[in-house]
Design a protein around this nucleic acid. Sequence first.
DNA 1: GGCATGACATTGC
DNA 2: AGCAATGCCATGC
Length: 132
Amino acid sequence: MAPADQVSPRWPPVHAIAALRLDGTIGWRQAVWGVTAQIPRGSVLSYGDVAAIIGAARAARQVGWALAALSPADADDLPWWRVLRTDGSIALQGDPVRGARQAAALRAEGVAVIDMRVDMPTVRWRVGASLL
DNA sequence: GGCATGACATTGC
DNA sequence: AGCAATGCCATGC
C-alpha cells in the first residue's frame, strides 16, 4: 500500500546531471556525489543506475566505493541512503548501524522498507532513458 | 606493475 | 525465491 499521492513528484533534472559524466575534469567521487545529490526525496537509484548516468555502466562497485569515502560530515548533506542494490535491497546489511540508519532515513521520506528492501518498480527514480 | 579488496550486476542453477 | 560463480574496475598497499 503506497498510494500514489504519498510519493513525492519525480522531476528528471536531465540538464543538471548531464554535466556529471565522468571525463578528464571530473573525478569519481565528484561525479557520484553530484548525481546522488540530485535524487529526489522519496526516490532511489541503484548503484548501477548511478554508474550508467556518469558514463561508466559497468563500474557499479565504484559507486559504492565513492559513497563509502564520504566523510561523516558530508554524509549528513548527501542523500547516500537513496542508493540501493538493483533488487531494492540495502547494501549495508553487513553494517547493522548504518544499515538501520539507511532504512530509517528512507522511511522518514515515505519509502516503504520491508525486510531491508524497497520495491524498486515503485520508488526507482525514472531518469530519462537518454542518459542511460 | 601485481595483487587483494569491495555500500555491485548478471547469469545459471 | 535464494545462492554461487563470474565479470567488473578504481583504489591502496
